[in-house]
Structures are given as structure tokens and as C-alpha cells.
Design a protein around this nucleic acid. Structure first.
Lengths: 221, 221
DNA sequence: CCCCACAAAATTGTATACAATAGAATATTG
DNA sequence: CAATATTCTATTGTATACAATTTTGTGGGG
């Protein structure tokens, strides 16, 4: 395995940020990280620089790195962008998916149904990711698919929470149903709208969640 | 000026790649760059790593960096993605632009007209960038606006050529006209479609250009 | 003449040493 | 005592030294 340490570090840190183990605002100083991973500062720096270009951390000259603090406004914007991009993928997929890919979509949908029925949140989460990936690929635009995947990954920390919201899993599955129907029928506009709505709902649910947490905090003071 | 050398290098290289001075496939070895910019390898490496995350160069472990070779297929995909994202901006802008921003759009449009009338390609290029930026901002989604700007920048090398295609400047301006009308009237769908078409045409023109270059090459052999 | 093995050279990956700067702590002065 | 100037410390930015690996070049065998 010819993997560079720096790449390994990037992935490790990426993972910790994206899953929320490293909270936004956390300071990342090079020597601590170096001792923690038992390497020199050099690969640490490279990893940090890479993370800064993908926006996960902020790198202020001479002042070190912090995990990018994401305001609720940022999140709303990111969810909206996500919704629009997925919608585009859906429209293109409805027009372009091959027969094989359409079968794959049905399979992915079935896998979601199974996970939803057993009410296994972790499993549904995985299957849901697969389901959406099939649609990205179906757009026949590898560049677009890649961009959307990156954005989804970036929002990962905030999405996992959502499925825990009461009843979210089954309504998510119901929304998938509409998406599948539209794509299978080749109805571009309907596919686009169904996907946009599907993602936006999650943004809204997430906002609800945030609001309730905030009001709890305030009343607790 | 507290700018890091690494950042300066990144910008310099970015510029050379994006303007085409550094052709796709060019090998970038660290020592040459270090001597050329008269710095050590350390900041060079940081710049290269950053460029690799934004996709401008490919960084193969232990095998150095090359300017990402972009196939025509890649370009088609990138132009399509660009068209779709600009279309989204246009739709949102038609719905959300403030009165001030609408005035700004008219101003930017007028500036394009002036440049088009004097047939100053460089000037039109600048004004055109401004025009589109106004629309990005008008979407009221800073995250989306930023993503589109980045993509536009990445396609910069290939776009500048287009305006040289016979008559492209005046038809570009005519297309702007349709976009402005739709946005000013708040007609979301029309704005979306006009923008998508506007960008896609450039992708197609670019393809034509490439084809002709390729056939020239072949007949010359 | 081609192919493979092996050695040499060039190049990248990592560690460490040194320089420069920002922020904290302390001293100084009105 | 407050405000400001000044040192001091911690941390980042850069250079260089060393290790590891890929690529290149050369020679022998088929």
C-alpha cells in the first residue's frame, strides 16, 4: 500500500469533522495533531491545507486552523444548493438512465424498503446513500455526480441526525417512491420536483431541530 | 502584507493553468518550481496539494504532479454542470433579487452593450463576468454563488477562446437581453431556461471549435 | 534485436531545525 | 488604577537534511 501519511491524515480528520466528532470552531494546532498521530508536522500541514481548500477548515495565516464554524444560514444555503443539484441529477437521470441503471434504481429502492421495515436507522442511512448515488450516476454526468457527492459528504454530519426525527424514515421512503415513479416513467419535471422537495424537507426538518435545541438552551439558562 | 508564500504560489500556478499557459499534462516537478520561484520545496508542496484538491492538478503518490488532462468529454460535462447551476441561480434571482440588485443588473447589461458596440473582446469578457456575477449574487445563496464562481474560473481557459468565434459577442449580448427581461419580470422558468441555453451554446460552440482544430490536425499529418 | 535483471540517479515523502510573527503576560507611566 | 508599551512565549512559516521509492540507464542472456 503506497498511501501517503498525509492522505491518511486528511481522511481521518475529514471523517472526524464530517461526523461531528470534531465540533465546528475547534482549534487544530499542528503539534498536538503531530503527537496524537505520531508523525512530524509536515504531513499534518499538508492535510490541513487540503482540508482548507475543500472548506472543512479555515486556515488563517499565522493563526492556525479551526474547524469551519457553520452558521444556520450557511446550512440553509448548503441544503438549498444540495436540493437544486440533486434535482438536476434527477431530471437528467429521468431522461438518460439505461435499462440496467433503471433496474439498479429499483433494487436500491427495495433495499431501502427493507431497512425501513426493520426500522434500522443505520442501515437505512446506508441504503439511502446508495439510492441517491444511483441517481447521480444516472445523470450520465460524472463531473456533476462528483460535485454532488462531495456536497452530500460535507452535509453528512447534519443529515444523520434527521432520520432520528420521529417518523422521518418512513416519510423519506414515501418520497423515494415518488422519485422512482417519475424517473422510471421518464418524467423529467416530476423527477426534478420530487427530488428538490425530498432534500428541502430535510433542510427544514433540520432547522426545526436546531430551533428546538436553541429554545431549550435559552429556557435552561 | 501577511500573505504566505504558499498562497502566492497557489494563485500563480492556478493562473497559469487556468489561462492555459501551463498546458494539461505538463509535469510539475518540485525542484524546478522551487528554483523558478526561488523558494524551498516546502511551500511548493503545499501549493500543489491545494491545487490537487480543487482538481486543477493530479497528484500521484511518489510520481509527482501533472496539470489535469481534460478530455473533451470532461469539458462537455463541466459545461453542462455550469449551465445547470447558472440556470438555478437565474431562477432564484428572478424570484429574490432586491430592487437595488435589479438596477445593478441593468447597469451590468448596459456595460456589456457598450463593450459589444466597440467590439472590444477583452472588455466584453470582463463585463460579461460582472454580468453573471450579479446574477449569482441575486440568487441570495452565497454558498451556491461561490460554487458557481469557482466552476466558472475553472472553465476560464476554454471560454476566452469562444468570444473570438465569429459573431459570438453580439449573439451573446442578445442572449443576455432575454435573460435580463425574464429576471426583471420575475419569470423564474424563463430566466432558468434562458440562462441554461446561454451557457450550453458556449459549450457547443466550444465543441465545434475543438472539432475543427482536431480535423485540421489530422489533415495536416 | 528484444527482454529482463540490476544498479544508479532523480524525485518524492517525512523529519527536524531555524526564523518570523501573533497573542499573552508583564512592566511602565501618567 | 487604567492604559499603553514592551518583552516573552507559543505557534506557525520556511528551509534543509535524510529516507524511501520510482524511473532511467546499462549490460547480459535469449
Amino acid at each position: 500500500m503506497a498511501e501517503r501519511i498525509a492522505d491518511h491524515l486528511r481522511k481521518a480528520l475529514e471523517d472526524e469533522i464530517v461526523t461531528g466528532r470534531l465540533a465546528p470552531g475547534t482549534r487544530l494546532d499542528e503539534v498536538s495533531l503531530a503527537t496524537r498521530f505520531d508523525v512530524s508536522r509536515t504531513p499534518i500541514r499538508e492535510a490541513l491545507h487540503q482540508l482548507s481548500t475543500s472548506g472543512l477548515i479555515e486556515l488563517r495565516p499565522r493563526r492556525g486552523a479551526i474547524v469551519t464554524p457553520v452558521t444556520t444560514e450557511d446550512l440553509v444555503e448548503m441544503f438549498e444548493t444540495m436540493a437544486e443539484m440533486e434535482a438536476v441529477c434527477g431530471r437528467l437521470a429521468a431522461r438518460r438512465m439505461t435499462d440496467d441503471e433503471r433496474r439498479g434504481l429499483l433494487d436500491a429502492h427495495e433495499a431501502c424498503r427493507l431497512a425501513a421495515e426493520t426500522e434500522d436507522i443505520e442501515l437505512y442511512y446506508e441504503r439511502n446513500v446508495d439510492f441517491h448515488r444511483v441517481i447521480y450516476t444516472g445523470s450520465q454526468n460524472g463531473f456533476l455526480a462528483n460535485e454532488v457527492r462531495q456536497l452530500r459528504r460535507r452535509l453528512q454530519a447534519y443529515r444523520r441526525l434527521q432520520l432520528r426525527v420521529r417518523g422521518r424514515m418512513s416519510s423519506s421512503f414515501a418520497e423515494h417512491e415518488a422519485i422512482v415513479e417519475a424517473i422510471m416513467a421518464g418524467e423529467e419535471v416530476r423527477a426534478e420536483e420530487a427530488l428538490r422537495a425530498h432534500i428541502m424537507i430535510q433542510g427544514e426538518r433540520f432547522n426545526d431541530l436546531l430551533m428546538s435545541v436553541n429554545s431549550l438552551k435559552k429556557s435552561g439558562e
